[in-house]
Lab assay of single mutants.
Amino acid sequence: EPLWIRPDAPSRCTWQLGRPASESPHHHTAPAKSPKILPDILKKIGDTPMVRINKIGKKFGLKCELLAKCEFFNAGGSVKDRISLRMIEDAERDGTLKPGDTIIEPTSGNTGIGLALAAAVRGYRCIIVMPEKMSSEKVDVLRALGAEIVRTPTNARFDSPESHVGVAWRLKNEIPNSHILDQYRNASNPLAHYDTTADEILQQCDGKLDMLVASVGTGGTITGIARKLKEKCPGCRIIGVDPEGSILAEPEELNQTEQTTYEVEGIGYDFIPTVLDRTVVDKWFKSNDEEAFTFARMLIAQEGLLCGGSAGSTVAVAVKAAQELQEGQRCVVILPDSVRNYMTKFLSDRWMLQKGFLKEEDLTEKKPWWWHLRVQELGLSAPLTVLPTITCGHTIEILREKGFDQAPVVDEAGVILGMVTLGNMLSSLLAGKVQPSDQVGKVIYKQFKQIRLTDTLGRLSHILEMDHFALVVHEQIQYHSTGKSSQRQMVFGVVTAIDLLNFVAAQERDQK
């Protein structure tokens, strides 16, 4: 057995438009009618409502009807409940999964919650491996369901041993009777949507819809739904939504950006999952974080739909894509998950301010006199920076000697690579993860907040409520011999709460 199987392995699926269902090699399930009293909570997966979006479509000038398939009504709160249950049931049916076995899954959280929910009911041990950027709410729900959680670096490539995929496979090879159901490759993922989600949409719309818009992560949702719609409703256009920084969209030119990270969760990847059939997507749109969270908040405030950030991405694209539809036509959007997962993220004004998705003037509360002053007023001194090749031991000596707790790590040209902190280095040394002679590049981390000289002290204040420091950066445009230009970030300084307090105190003292 291989040590790991690539999540982007070539698909062996034989589905073709027009091929009889009787030739399918898979076990198919028909939607079942729910009894009045459910035998367990797993029976509350599927049969989610279709809700008309009344205000947002009109606000953006849509002539067509805009409908939302509300997947956050599933038992675990997301569309991923469907595939989690289906993968477990299919693994039980073919004898792969037996009582007492362990389920391991690399996930952005929602599939993990679905699997942990099913594992709690069915009696399996469950280990979820997820990147650090995923919300604390997801972690809390997983723990409450009895799952064990392993976190991995957000910026690790999918084929790196440190990625959530790599760590999951390492655990599988170490733990007896453990299984990775593997949402990236498992046919049960798109089949769950082909058999149930798509049929529900067709039934709820009486077979009449002209466009379907869905955000894409593993691709199982859009693949399964689109294949069924292509068979039953061939005139329906399928629109895929991919965040900026991901590479799922086609044509490839759409993916060209210097951005590699994004805040919206559960969609987009740096590889093409095996289950994603991009041939059934008629057109791709890219979405960005700001519009995703703005539209998610709009869905909550104006439509009462308590959905997550990827739902915002989907609707932001839908109001663009559906401009081509006329009166009497219908566009369906998939709202994948609930706001429950993001209470401390985009639902929080403070978080939105820190990330730059909300401006101070958007909030009406009274601010102190210094709130709208610029960061450049602080008069920061030149920063202490270190090269990635310097040793951890030497870096600790320098920081202690100069009285700093942290320093930016830059390359020879001064471009920011990340940050090192005294606390992080000492804990890594004590844990045996690094040696004093190791290069400081081994303990770089990139989960820090950046701020510009033109940003306000109010925004800085919000950042420092949650973080010990902020890195002050400025952009530099560099022209190359080819005539092309590129933008790079340079370090201007490091600012802490002490710097802000000293500035405010000094100004008030001078005024007296």
Rank of each mutant, 00 (worst) to 15 (best):
Q376A: 03
P368D: 10
G328M: 07
I247T: 15
K355D: 02
Y479L: 14
L380H: 08
E290H: 11
L417M: 14
T391G: 02
R459P: 11
F503K: 02
D362Y: 13
A322H: 01
N341Q: 04
K359Y: 11
I239R: 00
S246P: 01
H480G: 03
V275P: 03
Q302A: 03
V491N: 12
S246T: 05
R509V: 12
Q376E: 12
L457F: 10
R330S: 09
A407W: 01
T344Q: 08
Q476M: 09
Y269H: 08
L305T: 00
D438Q: 09
I238R: 00
E401N: 12
M466D: 12
L254E: 04
E265N: 00
L430V: 12
D405M: 06
W351H: 06
K449M: 09
K345C: 03
R452S: 08
D242L: 01
V339E: 06
T279R: 15
V375M: 12
K446N: 15
D510T: 10
A296R: 00
G418C: 07
P408T: 03
V281W: 02
E303R: 05
N502F: 11
A316S: 04
D405Q: 07
A322Y: 00
G483E: 15
L417S: 15
E327P: 10
Y342E: 00
A497M: 11
I416A: 10
W351T: 00
W371R: 12
V319W: 00
P388L: 14
E250T: 10
T421M: 14
F285P: 04
T294V: 14
V241W: 01
N424Q: 12
V241E: 07
E360P: 04
S485V: 05
T456V: 15
T389R: 13
V491G: 13
Y269Q: 02
K512G: 09
Q256T: 07
E327Q: 10
I463C: 13
Q447H: 14
Y269V: 01
G432C: 05
V504Y: 15
V332P: 00
G483V: 15
E401G: 14
K286F: 00
E291S: 13
C331W: 05
K283I: 06
M490E: 12
E258T: 11
P273I: 06
D510A: 12
G483D: 13
Q376P: 03
T344M: 06
V241L: 03
L399W: 07
D337K: 04
